[in-house]
């Protein structure tokens, strides 16, 4: 069965459609690049899949079910913003995740906290943005989830941090799990993808395996530029 199944999904903000009757599905065990320029609907699609947006038409299914407590137990979600309460310290956040997610490894989290050189007792409020992002990445990657949905984890960070984030994701996602990573910074990440889906102007413009896309010596970035240059021209 497909881990992600999207059928005739539409979502609009007022009169502006951001996703217009899109359909696609992905089998389990892949690293999927969700690609598109800023404002192309990547975050809206992700928010529908994780259950943060509810007023849409069509179906967005995880393991065959609409977003709900069951699908949320399967999905480890990293948003593009800080979602931890300001009063929390890393230890509080770890205990919080350990309480709610049966697949969360407390032991791994404390080890990673050391490895990431994050102070266990420092208030999140007083941490730098980079430290907060590291902590959230740690929390997500300490889950033994079936599906990781990572929204722009590389946005707004320097190249060294990007390499660190990618390394953390690659080393810590369990074998057989699926990772869906959204980004508009393709150059740094294209080596890790098994499949990509490009969305823009509310439509799925490309959905293919990377081997297919790389035929003829092209890179994913080349395809991206070509697709979106065309998409902008026709729109």
């Amino acid at each position: 069965m497909s881990i992600i199944q999207v059928k005739n999904l539409s979502k609009s903000y007022g009169a502006n459609p951001v996703l217009d009757n899109i359909s696609f599905e992905f089998e389990e065990g892949q690293i999927i690049g969700l690609l598109g320029p800023n404002g192309s609907g990547k975050t809206s699609l992700i928010k529908i899949l994780v259950g943060l947006i509810n007023d849409y038409s069509g179906d967005a299914l995880i393991d065959g079910q609409r977003p709900g407590p069951y699908t949320k137990s399967l999905v480890a979600y990293l948003p593009e913003r800080t979602y931890l309460a300001e009063w929390m310290r890393p230890t509080d956040a770890i205990e919080f995740f350990a309480d709610f997610y049966a697949d969360f490894s407390r032991e791994k989290a404390y080890k990673m906290l050391d490895a990431f050189q994050l102070p266990a007792k420092q208030n999140i409020k007083s941490m730098s943005k980079g430290m907060q992002e590291k902590l959230q990445l740690l929390l997500v990657m300490c889950r033994n989830a079936r599906l990781y949905i990572l929204d722009e984890p590389l946005g707004g960070v320097d190249p060294a941090a990007r390499a660190f984030i990618l390394d953390t994701i690659m080393k810590n996602h369990p074998a057989g799990s699926t990772v869906m990573l959204s980004t508009h910074l393709i150059y740094d990440v294209e080596r890790i993808f098994d499949s990509v889906i490009m969305i823009g102007r509310g439509q799925v413009l490309v959905k293919a395996g990377v081997e297919e896309l790389r035929r003829g010596g092209r890179t994913i970035e080349d395809v991206f530029k070509e697709v979106f240059q065309y998409a902008w021209q026709v729109n």
């Binding site: 943060l52 407590p69 069951y70 309460a85």
Partner: peptide
Amino acid sequence: NKSLYGNQGYLSFTLPVS
């Protein structure tokens, strides 16, 4: 308001609870 409809809502509403 903060824990459901602010940034923390991203955590609250993705917990495996109803």
